[in-house]
Design a protein around this nucleic acid. Structure first.
Length: 937
RNA sequence: GGGCGGUUAGCUCAGUUGGUUAGAGCGCCUGCCUUACAAGCAGGAAGUCGGGGGUUCGAGUCCCUCACUGCCCACCA
C-alpha cells in the first residue's frame, strides 16, 4: 500500500476490505489464558448485549456498538487484555412469532407441525438468517472476539440454564402455582410484568346493578350497583366488595346478590381495599381475572372462576356466552344487561390498558398455573451490590449516576418473577410431572422415573423459560459456569467479573437487573482462584454500567416503524461511511441526553474524514518529493511520540505540545465516558490546529530546491509525520477504517504491526505539555487573525501582499515580548497573513500619522495600502468594541472596588481580573484613539 | 399517584467542585478555484442561559417556586 492515495476519500473503497481483514486475521481474539497466565495483564472485559437472532441493526445498536468499540479499542491500545464478547439471543417470543408467520404464509400452523418439527424448523430458520445482525456488526468493524461467539441456546449455555433452575429449585426459590399473570391471547403465553406496556385508552365505565336477594331467596327489589371497565369478567364474579365503613351499603353486608346473566348467588363482603370514592363504591370481585380481586379472593377464601380460554374467548364457565371472543362477549353482555334494565350508566372513562410488548395485543390478566422465582433473596444481594458496602465502595457503579436510583427503586419493590412461558422455542423447564403421584421431579439429567414414587409415568413440563432467564446468566455462563473446575476455570478467573456493561435504559430491568441478581447469586458460590470465598465485589457480573441515550430522529421524535422515521444505519453508512457515522454518534453521545440523529452532522464528519485523507496525501506528497532529492524520512517507530529539539521552530514545538494536550484530554474524557468531549477534542486538534495552522506554517519549511536546508526540511518532515501518525492512533478507536488505511499507507505497506488497532494509544501527562509555547502561538495566531480582519475591512485583495508596521513595545507577558515574537516568526506572519515586509518603528517616529493602527494584546500594527478603511463601517466596529470594553471594564472595576471580593476571592481570580482590567483599559484607549483618528465624514 | 430528567445562538448540543467578557458543529452573511482538501480557505453576524425569588464578594452552575416539556414506575375496579 504505497503513498498513492486516490484523490478523494471514498469509504466504500476501503471499509469492506478492512472489516474482512480484521475478522480473517482474528486480530481481536482473546483466547483462554494459558496455565499460570490467568492473572497476567489487567483485562478489560465487556459483553455485547446480545441482539435477538431475529434482529436487524438499528441506530440504537450502532450507538451501543460504537461506544463499546471505542472503549474496547482504546483499552486494547492502552495495553490491556481486551475481550469484547459477542453473541445472539434466541428471543423466545420474537423468534417463534417470526417462524409462525412464515408457516402461516405456507398455509400451515405450528400445531399442525407439532412441537418437535416446529422447533427443528426454528433452528433451521436460525441457521439461515440468524447471523444477519452479527454480519452487520462485522461490517461496522466491531472489534469483538468472533472466536467466542455464542448463542443462548448453545449446548453449554443450556447446561448453565438448567443448572441455575435446578439449583434455585433446590434452594426453595422456585415455585409453581396458580396466580394472576399477564396473559397474551395472541402469543398464548404468560408474560412478565415488564413485558406489558401500558397505554391510555378511552373506554367506558359500565355501572351495573346486581339484585339483592332476601332471606326468602327472592329478589328484594333492591340493587347494589357496581362499576367495571371489563363487563365480560362479570361472568366470573364470585362476590361484591364494599368498604367496611361505607354507610351506604353496610346494611347489605352478609346478604346475597343475584349475579345477572349467570343467575349465581354471590355474597356481599367487606374489604378495606375498596375505595368509597371510586365508581359506585362497590366492586365486583373476579379473582380469576384481576390481581386485586385475586387478593380479595384469597383474603375471603372465595373460589376463582376462570371464564376465558388461552385465546381470550369465553369458556364453558361463561354459560350462554361460551365461545365468544372477549370483546364480542362484552358487547353482548352490555346489551343483554340493558335489555334487562340492569345497566345503570355508561360513563366515558380513560384508563391504562396493558398491551403485549411483542405483539401489542391487549393483555388479559388471568389466573393460570406458572413457575415463579422467589426473588427477594436474590434482590437483596442485587441491592447490596449497588449500595455502598462497609468499605464505602459500591461493587457496581452506574453512569449516569441517576440510574442507580431508578434501579434501586425497582429492586426494592420487586415482585416474584414469572419465568414460565407457554412457548415451544426456548429452554424447556427441566421438570417432570408424575401421573401416578402427581408430584414434580426437577433434575439436572432427564429422569426416567418419578423421584417421589418411582413411577415411570412421567412427562416433561411443556413450558419453556423466559428468555431473560438465560440471558441473565450470560456473564457467568459465557465463561464456563457451572463447569468451574481446577482445570476449567481460566476464562472465569481471567474475565469474571466483566468490567463494564454498555446498554440502553430500556433493558435496565429486563436484563441488567436480572444479570446482577443471577450473577451475584451464582458467581457468589464460586470460590476465588486461591480458594477463598468470593466477596460481593467479585461476584457481580460487571463493575460498571454505562447507560446510553436513545437515538431519536432529527426532530427528536422516537424512531418507530409506524411513524416511518426509522433511520437505517446501514443506509447512512453506505452514504457517508462507517467512520463518519461512528464519529457522529460519538460526538453526540453525552451521558444522559438523547441523541437527535441528524445526517447534516454526519455529512460534516465525512468532510472531517476527507480532511484527514487529504492531510495524508499532502504529507505523502512531500515525503516523496523529499525522497527524490535524497532526504529520507523514516516513518515513526512503533508506538513512539514525536520529540522536538528545544530550538526547533515554534510551530513544531507547538504542534507537539498540542498533541500532548490532546492525548491527555482524550484519555481523560474516555475514562469518564465522555465520548463527545473526546471526539470534539480530536476534531478540534486535527482540523483546527494540525491542518489550519501547523500544515500551513510547515509549508515554509518544505523546501526541495537545490539550495534547500536539507536538515531543516528533514526535521520538519519528521515532526510532521510523527505528529500525524500519533494523531491517527488517537483517532483510530473512533474512525478505525480510515486510520487503518492511511496508517498502512504511511508505512508504505510495511507497517510495524498488523493493525493500527494493535499499536499503543498516545498518552501524556501535564509535564509533557509545553504551555509556554502554546501561549506564544496563541499570540501569533491572534496577530494573524487581526491582520486578516483588517485586510478584510479594507477590502485588500486576498492575493496581494502588503507591508506592515509594528510599534515597538517592551511589555512582556508570560516572558514573551510580542515584538520579539513577531520578529522571530516574521516568515510565518508574512505567509499566513500575506504581509510583504514587517518594519518595526518607535511610537515617536514621525510621518506615520496617517496609518490605521490596530491593537493585538500589547502591540500595535498597521498595514500600508492605498485602500483606506470603509469609514462608516470602521466607526461602527470601533463603537461596538468600545461599548464592549467599557462594559467589561466597568464590571471589572466594580469587582475590584469591592472589598469583600478582594478579601474573599482566591488570589488567582483577583490577579486574573486585574490583568483583564489592564488589558481592557489598554484596548479601550486604543480603540478610542482609533475612533478619534478616523476622518470626520 | 409517585419518581427522574430537560429548558443555553436559527437548529443540535457542550459548559467539570460557583470564579475573569458563556463555547462547538451545522445553518446563515461576505470574500476567495491560495496545486492536500470547494467534502475546501479566510472573515463575520447571532444568546435578557425558560419566568420569578433567594444564598454569595461573585450564579448558566447552589436553594426555593412557577411554567412548559420528555421519560420511568404504580394492582384503584
Amino acid at each position: 500500500m504505497p503513498h498513492d492515495l486516490p484523490k478523494a476519500y471514498d469509504p466504500t473503497a476501503i471499509e469492506d476490505r478492512w472489516a474482512e481483514y480484521w475478522v480473517r486475521e482474528k486480530l481481536f481474539a482473546q483466547p483462554t489464558p494459558g496455565a499460570g497466565d490467568s492473572t497476567a495483564g489487567k483485562p478489560f472485559t465487556i459483553l455485547l448485549p446480545p441482539p435477538n437472532v431475529t434482529g436487524r441493526l438499528h441506530m440504537g445498536h450502532m450507538l451501543n456498538q460504537t461506544e463499546m468499540d471505542i472503549l474496547t479499542r482504546w483499552q486494547r491500545m492502552s495495553g490491556r487484555r481486551a475481550l469484547w464478547l459477542p453473541g445472539t439471543d434466541h428471543a423466545g417470543i420474537a423468534t417463534q412469532m417470526m417462524v409462525e408467520r412464515q408457516l402461516t404464509e405456507e398455509g400451515k400452523s405450528r400445531q399442525q407441525l407439532g412441537r418437535k418439527a416446529f422447533v427443528e424448523r426454528v433452528w433451521e430458520w436460525k441457521h439461515h438468517y440468524g447471523g444477519a445482525i452479527l454480519d452487520q456488526m462485522k461490517r461496522l468493524g466491531a472489534s469483538v472476539d468472533w472466536q467466542r461467539e455464542y448463542f443462548t441456546m448453545d449446548e453449554r449455555l443450556s447446561v448453565a440454564v438448567r443448572e441455575a433452575f435446578v439449583r434455585l429449585h433446590e434452594q426453595g426459590l422456585i415455585y409453581r402455582g396458580a396466580y394472576i399473570v399477564n396473559w397474551c391471547p395472541r402469543c398464548q403465553t404468560a408474560i412478565s410484568d415488564l413485558e406489558v406496556v401500558y397505554d391510555e385508552h378511552k373506554g367506558h365505565l359500565w355501572e351495573i346493578r346486581y339484585p339483592v336477594i332476601g332471606t326468602d331467596g327472592k329478589d328484594t327489589g333492591e340493587f347494589l350497583t357496581v362499576a367495571t371497565t371489563r363487563p365480560e369478567t362479570m361472568l366470573g364474579d364470585v362476590a361484591v366488595a364494599i368498604h367496611p365503613e361505607d354507610e351506604r351499603y353496610l346494611h347489605l353486608h352478609g346478604k346475597k346478590l343475584r349475579l345477572p346473566l349467570m343467575d349465581r348467588e354471590i355474597p356481599v363482603i367487606l374489604d378495606g381495599w375498596v375505595s368509597r370514592e371510586f365508581g359506585t363504591g362497590a366492586v365486583k370481585v373476579t379473582p380469576a381475572h384481576d390481581p386485586n380481586d385475586f387478593a380479595i379472593g384469597e383474603r375471603h377464601h372465595l373460589p376463582s372462576i376462570n371464564v376465558m380460554d388461552d385465546t381470550a374467548h369465553i369458556n364453558a364457565e361463561g354459560g350462554a356466552y361460551a365461545g365468544l371472543d372477549r370483546y364480542v362477549a362484552r358487547k353482548r353482555i352490555v346489551s343483554d344487561l340493558e335489555e334487562q334494565g340492569l345497566l345503570v350508566a355508561v360513563k366515558d372513562y380513560t384508563n391504562n390498558v396493558g398491551h403485549c410488548d411483542r405483539c401489542k395485543t391487549v393483555v388479559e390478566p388471568r389466573l393460570s398455573t406458572q413457575w415463579f422465582v422467589k426473588i427477594q433473596p436474590l434482590a437483596d444481594k442485587a441491592i447490596a451490590a449497588v449500595k455502598p458496602g462497609p468499605d464505602g465502595e459500591k461493587a457496581i457503579r452506574f453512569t449516569p449516576e441517576q440510574y442507580e436510583k431508578t434501579y434501586l427503586n425497582w429492586m426494592e419493590n420487586i415482585h416474584d418473577w414469572c419465568i414460565s412461558r407457554q412457548l415451544w422455542w426456548g429452554h424447556r423447564i427441566p421438570a417432570w410431572h408424575c401421573s401416578t403421584c402427581h408430584k414434580i421431579t426437577v433434575a439436572r439429567v432427564d429422569p426416567t422415573a418419578c423421584a417421589h414414587c418411582g413411577s415411570t409415568q412421567i412427562t416433561q413440563e411443556t413450558d419453556v423459560l423466559d428468555t431473560w432467564f438465560s440471558s441473565g446468566l450470560l456473564p457467568v455462563s459465557v465463561f464456563g459456569w457451572p463447569n468451574i473446575t481446577a482445570e476449567n476455570r481460566r476464562d472465569f478467573d481471567a474475565f469474571y467479573p466483566t468490567n463494564l456493561l454498555v446498554t440502553g435504559f430500556d433493558i435496565l430491568f429486563f436484563w441488567v437487573a436480572r444479570m446482577i441478581m443471577l450473577g451475584c447469586w451464582f458467581a457468589g458460590d464460586v470460590p476465588m482462584p486461591d480458594g477463598s470465598p468470593r466477596p460481593l465485589a467479585e461476584s457481580v457480573p460487571f463493575k460498571e454500567v454505562y447507560i446510553h441515550a436513545l437515538v431519536r430522529d432529527a426532530n427528536r421524535e422516537k424512531m418507530s416503524k409506524t411513524k416511518g422515521n426509522v433511520i437505517d444505519p446501514i443506509e447512512i453508512v453506505k452514504q457517508y461511511g462507517t467512520d463518519a457515522v461512528r464519529f457522529t454518534l460519538a460526538s453526540m453521545a453525552s451521558p444522559g441526553t438523547d441523541i437527535a440523529f441528524n445526517v447534516a452532522r454526519t455529512e460534516g464528519y465525512r468532510a472531517f474524514a476527507n480532511k484527514i485523507w487529504n492531510a495524508a496525501r499532502f504529507l505523502f506528497m512531500n515525503v516523496d518529493r523529499a525522497a527524490e532529492i535524497g532526504i529520507a524520512v523514516d516513518p515513526p517507530a512503533l508506538g513512539s511520540m514525536p520529540v522536538v529539539a528545544a530550538d526547533a521552530p515554534v510551530e513544531e514545538r507547538w504542534i507537539v505540545a498540542e498533541l500532548h494536550s490532546t492525548a491527555a484530554k482524550v484519555n481523560q474524557s474516555l475514562e469518564n465516558y465522555r465520548y463527545d468531549d473526546a471526539a470534539n477534542t480530536l476534531y478540534q486538534f486535527f482540523w483546527g490546529s494540525f491542518c489550519d495552522w501547523y500544515l500551513e506554517i510547515v509549508k515554509l519549511r518544505l523546501d526541495f530546491s537545490e539550495t534547500a536546508d536539507k536538515a531543516g526540511t528533514k526535521a520538519a518532515l519528521t515532526t510532521l509525520v510523527g505528529v500525524f501518525e500519533a494523531a491517527l492512533r488517537l483517532l483510530s478507536p473512533f474512525m478505525p477504517f480510515l486510520t487503518e488505511e492511511i496508517w498502512h499507507a504511511l508505512y508504505d505497506g510495511n507497517p510495524p504491526a498488523k493493525s493500527i488497532a494493535l499499536t499503543s494509544y498516545p498518552s501524556a501527562s501535564n509535564r509533557d505539555i509545553d504551555s509556554r509555547t502554546q501561549y506564544r502561538m496563541i499570540l501569533l495566531q491572534d496577530l494573524i487573525r487581526v491582520i486578516r480582519e483588517e485586510r478584510k475591512n479594507r477590502d485588500i485583495p486576498e492575493r496581494e501582499s502588503v507591508p506592515m508596521f509594528v510599534i515597538a513595545g517592551s511589555i512582556r507577558d508570560f516572558g514573551t515580548n510580542p515584538d520579539e515574537l513577531i520578529k522571530q516568526n516574521s516568515e510565518i506572519v508574512q505567509r499566513l497573513a500575506k504581509i510583504s515586509t514587517i518594519t518595526t518603528i518607535k511610537r515617536t517616529d514621525v510621518g506615520k500619522e496617517d496609518l490605521i493602527w490596530r491593537s493585538v494584546g500589547y502591540t500595535e500594527i498597521a498595514l500600508v495600502h492605498e485602500k483606506q478603511v470603509d469609514v462608516p463601517a470602521e466607526r461602527e466596529r470601533l463603537t461596538r468594541d468600545i461599548a464592549k470594553y467599557e462594559k467589561g471594564l466597568a464590571a471589572a472595576e466594580r469587582q475590584l472596588g469591592n472589598e469583600s471580593f478582594l478579601a474573599k476571592a482566591p488570589a488567582q481570580v483577583v490577579e486574573g481580573l486585574k490583568k483583564q482590567e489592564s488589558e481592557t483599559r489598554l484596548l479601550l484607549e486604543k480603540a478610542g484613539a482609533a475612533l478619534d483618528a478616523l476622518p470626520k465624514e
